[in-house]
Amino acid sequence: MTAREEILARIRAANGPAREPTEIDAAYAAIPRDYRRAHHDSEQRDDIVALFAERAADYRATVEPVPEADLPAAIARAVTGKARLIVPDGVPEAWLAELPSATTIVRDEPPLSARELDAIDGVVTGCAVAIAETGTIILDHGPAQGRRALTLVPDFHLVVVRADHVAPDIADALARLDPSRPHTLISGPSATSDIELIRVEGVHGPRNLHILVSG
Protein backbone atom coordinates (compact mmCIF):
# COMPACT_ATOMS: atom_id res chain seq x y z
CA MET A 1 0.00 0.00 0.00
CA THR A 2 1.27 3.49 -0.75
CA ALA A 3 1.25 6.08 2.00
CA ARG A 4 -1.63 7.77 0.23
CA GLU A 5 -3.75 4.63 0.15
CA GLU A 6 -2.91 3.79 3.72
CA ILE A 7 -3.77 7.23 5.09
CA LEU A 8 -7.06 7.26 3.20
CA ALA A 9 -7.82 3.76 4.49
CA ARG A 10 -7.09 4.83 8.08
CA ILE A 11 -9.41 7.80 7.68
CA ARG A 12 -12.18 5.59 6.35
CA ALA A 13 -11.62 3.14 9.19
CA ALA A 14 -12.07 6.01 11.64
CA ASN A 15 -14.94 7.77 9.88
CA GLY A 16 -16.76 4.98 8.15
CA PRO A 17 -17.05 4.73 4.38
CA ALA A 18 -16.76 7.88 2.27
CA ARG A 19 -20.03 9.66 1.54
CA GLU A 20 -21.22 10.70 -1.89
CA PRO A 21 -19.78 14.06 -2.98
CA THR A 22 -23.25 15.53 -3.35
CA GLU A 23 -24.10 14.45 0.17
CA ILE A 24 -20.92 16.05 1.47
CA ASP A 25 -21.57 19.28 -0.40
CA ALA A 26 -25.08 19.40 1.00
CA ALA A 27 -23.75 18.90 4.52
CA TYR A 28 -21.21 21.66 3.90
CA ALA A 29 -23.89 24.03 2.66
CA ALA A 30 -25.90 23.32 5.81
CA ILE A 31 -23.12 24.44 8.19
CA PRO A 32 -24.65 27.16 10.36
CA ARG A 33 -23.03 30.52 9.71
CA ASP A 34 -24.78 32.80 12.11
CA TYR A 35 -21.94 35.28 12.23
CA ARG A 36 -22.27 38.58 10.47
CA ARG A 37 -20.58 38.63 7.09
CA ALA A 38 -20.68 42.41 7.31
CA HIS A 39 -19.97 44.36 10.48
CA HIS A 40 -20.33 47.68 8.71
CA ASP A 41 -22.80 49.25 6.35
CA SER A 42 -21.21 49.15 2.90
CA GLU A 43 -23.45 52.03 1.80
CA GLN A 44 -21.64 54.37 4.15
CA ARG A 45 -18.59 54.69 1.91
CA ASP A 46 -17.00 57.57 3.79
CA ASP A 47 -17.27 55.77 7.09
CA ILE A 48 -15.80 52.60 5.63
CA VAL A 49 -12.83 54.43 4.16
CA ALA A 50 -12.29 56.36 7.38
CA LEU A 51 -12.42 53.14 9.35
CA PHE A 52 -9.82 51.60 7.07
CA ALA A 53 -7.51 54.57 7.56
CA GLU A 54 -7.95 54.51 11.32
CA ARG A 55 -7.35 50.79 11.67
CA ALA A 56 -4.36 50.71 9.32
CA ALA A 57 -2.84 53.53 11.37
CA ASP A 58 -3.32 51.43 14.53
CA TYR A 59 -0.56 49.17 13.23
CA ARG A 60 1.73 52.14 13.05
CA ALA A 61 1.60 52.39 9.30
CA THR A 62 1.72 55.98 8.01
CA VAL A 63 -1.72 56.73 6.62
CA GLU A 64 -2.61 59.87 4.65
CA PRO A 65 -5.91 60.70 3.01
CA VAL A 66 -5.15 62.37 -0.32
CA PRO A 67 -7.49 63.78 -2.97
CA GLU A 68 -6.93 62.02 -6.30
CA ALA A 69 -5.49 65.15 -7.89
CA ASP A 70 -2.88 65.52 -5.17
CA LEU A 71 -1.51 61.99 -5.47
CA PRO A 72 1.63 62.90 -7.50
CA ALA A 73 2.62 65.50 -4.93
CA ALA A 74 1.86 63.22 -1.99
CA ILE A 75 3.87 60.41 -3.55
CA ALA A 76 6.76 62.74 -4.17
CA ARG A 77 6.69 63.86 -0.54
CA ALA A 78 6.50 60.33 0.76
CA VAL A 79 9.52 59.08 -1.17
CA THR A 80 11.76 62.00 -0.38
CA GLY A 81 15.23 60.73 0.34
CA LYS A 82 14.77 57.42 -1.47
CA ALA A 83 17.37 57.27 -4.21
CA ARG A 84 16.09 54.25 -6.11
CA LEU A 85 12.47 53.23 -6.35
CA ILE A 86 11.12 50.18 -8.07
CA VAL A 87 7.82 50.70 -9.83
CA PRO A 88 5.82 47.75 -11.17
CA ASP A 89 4.04 47.74 -14.50
CA GLY A 90 0.59 49.22 -14.37
CA VAL A 91 1.38 52.07 -11.97
CA PRO A 92 -0.07 55.17 -13.65
CA GLU A 93 2.64 57.44 -15.03
CA ALA A 94 0.79 60.38 -13.50
CA TRP A 95 1.63 59.13 -10.00
CA LEU A 96 5.32 59.61 -10.76
CA ALA A 97 5.00 63.03 -12.39
CA GLU A 98 6.35 65.03 -9.49
CA LEU A 99 9.08 62.73 -8.17
CA PRO A 100 12.23 64.59 -7.13
CA SER A 101 14.93 64.55 -9.79
CA ALA A 102 17.27 62.77 -7.39
CA THR A 103 15.00 59.72 -7.43
CA THR A 104 15.73 57.02 -9.99
CA ILE A 105 12.90 54.81 -11.15
CA VAL A 106 13.85 51.16 -11.61
CA ARG A 107 11.70 48.69 -13.58
CA ASP A 108 11.53 44.97 -12.97
CA GLU A 109 12.53 44.28 -16.57
CA PRO A 110 14.32 41.94 -16.84
CA PRO A 111 13.33 40.67 -13.39
CA LEU A 112 15.72 41.75 -10.66
CA SER A 113 17.44 39.20 -8.47
CA ALA A 114 16.76 39.23 -4.74
CA ARG A 115 20.20 40.76 -4.18
CA GLU A 116 19.40 43.52 -6.67
CA LEU A 117 16.07 44.17 -5.02
CA ASP A 118 17.85 44.46 -1.70
CA ALA A 119 19.74 47.46 -3.09
CA ILE A 120 16.46 49.26 -3.89
CA ASP A 121 15.21 51.82 -1.39
CA GLY A 122 11.50 51.47 -1.85
CA VAL A 123 8.55 50.36 -3.92
CA VAL A 124 5.40 52.19 -5.05
CA THR A 125 2.29 50.13 -5.74
CA GLY A 126 -1.46 50.06 -5.87
CA CYS A 127 -3.47 47.23 -4.34
CA ALA A 128 -6.27 44.82 -5.22
CA VAL A 129 -8.55 45.22 -2.22
CA ALA A 130 -8.42 46.62 1.30
CA ILE A 131 -10.35 45.62 4.42
CA ALA A 132 -11.76 48.36 6.62
CA GLU A 133 -12.55 46.18 9.64
CA THR A 134 -8.96 45.04 10.01
CA GLY A 135 -7.00 47.84 8.32
CA THR A 136 -5.58 45.36 5.83
CA ILE A 137 -4.27 45.82 2.28
CA ILE A 138 -4.49 42.88 -0.10
CA LEU A 139 -2.17 42.52 -3.07
CA ASP A 140 -3.03 40.02 -5.76
CA HIS A 141 0.22 40.87 -7.53
CA GLY A 142 -1.58 41.94 -10.66
CA PRO A 143 -1.16 45.28 -12.46
CA ALA A 144 0.43 48.07 -10.40
CA GLN A 145 1.48 45.61 -7.69
CA GLY A 146 4.31 43.59 -9.17
CA ARG A 147 5.43 40.10 -8.27
CA ARG A 148 5.64 39.27 -4.59
CA ALA A 149 9.36 39.93 -4.09
CA LEU A 150 8.99 43.58 -5.14
CA THR A 151 6.88 44.50 -2.13
CA LEU A 152 8.90 42.32 0.21
CA VAL A 153 12.61 42.95 -0.14
CA PRO A 154 12.79 46.79 -0.31
CA ASP A 155 12.53 48.36 3.13
CA PHE A 156 9.90 50.95 2.21
CA HIS A 157 6.48 50.29 0.69
CA LEU A 158 4.28 53.09 -0.52
CA VAL A 159 0.82 51.86 -1.44
CA VAL A 160 -2.06 53.78 -2.94
CA VAL A 161 -5.48 52.62 -1.82
CA ARG A 162 -8.43 54.02 -3.75
CA ALA A 163 -11.70 54.41 -1.88
CA ASP A 164 -13.35 51.84 -4.11
CA HIS A 165 -10.71 49.28 -3.11
CA VAL A 166 -11.94 49.30 0.44
CA ALA A 167 -14.29 46.47 1.40
CA PRO A 168 -15.97 46.75 4.77
CA ASP A 169 -15.17 43.26 6.02
CA ILE A 170 -13.01 40.19 5.50
CA ALA A 171 -15.84 38.29 3.83
CA ASP A 172 -16.55 40.81 1.07
CA ALA A 173 -12.83 41.37 0.51
CA LEU A 174 -12.18 37.66 -0.03
CA ALA A 175 -15.16 37.43 -2.35
CA ARG A 176 -13.57 40.03 -4.62
CA LEU A 177 -10.41 37.98 -5.12
CA ASP A 178 -9.45 35.33 -7.67
CA PRO A 179 -8.20 32.38 -5.59
CA SER A 180 -5.95 31.13 -8.37
CA ARG A 181 -3.67 34.16 -7.95
CA PRO A 182 -1.02 34.51 -5.23
CA HIS A 183 -2.05 36.95 -2.51
CA THR A 184 -0.38 38.94 0.20
CA LEU A 185 -2.41 40.44 3.02
CA ILE A 186 -0.60 43.29 4.69
CA SER A 187 -1.64 44.84 7.99
CA GLY A 188 0.95 47.39 8.91
CA PRO A 189 4.72 47.13 8.71
CA SER A 190 6.43 43.87 9.60
CA ALA A 191 6.34 43.20 13.30
CA THR A 192 7.11 40.63 15.93
CA SER A 193 5.91 39.85 19.42
CA ASP A 194 8.54 37.22 19.99
CA ILE A 195 10.32 38.97 22.81
CA GLU A 196 8.15 39.03 25.93
CA LEU A 197 5.03 39.15 23.72
CA ILE A 198 5.61 42.86 23.17
CA ARG A 199 4.98 44.07 19.66
CA VAL A 200 7.95 45.61 17.86
CA GLU A 201 7.65 46.94 14.32
CA GLY A 202 10.26 46.22 11.72
CA VAL A 203 11.66 42.77 11.14
CA HIS A 204 12.18 41.19 7.72
CA GLY A 205 9.43 42.74 5.64
CA PRO A 206 9.34 46.47 4.81
CA ARG A 207 9.89 48.37 8.03
CA ASN A 208 7.99 51.35 6.73
CA LEU A 209 4.54 51.10 5.24
CA HIS A 210 3.09 54.32 3.88
CA ILE A 211 -0.53 54.27 2.77
CA LEU A 212 -2.10 56.97 0.65
CA VAL A 213 -5.87 56.74 0.70
CA SER A 214 -7.12 58.51 -2.37
CA GLY A 215 -10.53 59.69 -3.52
Binding site: H141, P182, T184, G188, P189
Partner: peptide
Amino acid sequence: STAERMNPYTTIWSGVANADG
Protein backbone atom coordinates in the same frame (compact mmCIF):
# COMPACT_ATOMS: atom_id res chain seq x y z
CA SER B 1 -3.24 34.32 18.64
CA THR B 2 -1.43 37.65 18.70
CA ALA B 3 -4.51 39.56 19.87
CA GLU B 4 -4.61 41.64 16.71
CA ARG B 5 -7.44 42.40 14.33
CA MET B 6 -5.18 40.98 11.67
CA ASN B 7 -1.62 39.74 11.72
CA PRO B 8 0.89 41.79 9.68
CA TYR B 9 1.30 39.32 6.82
CA THR B 10 -0.67 36.49 5.32
CA THR B 11 0.54 34.74 2.19
CA ILE B 12 -1.89 32.71 0.11
CA TRP B 13 -0.74 30.72 -2.90
CA SER B 14 -1.92 27.89 -5.05
CA GLY B 15 0.67 25.67 -6.74
CA VAL B 16 3.16 27.77 -8.66
CA ALA B 17 2.52 31.19 -10.16
CA ASN B 18 3.86 32.41 -13.44
CA ALA B 19 7.13 34.30 -12.85
CA ASP B 20 6.24 35.00 -9.23
CA GLY B 21 7.77 33.05 -6.39
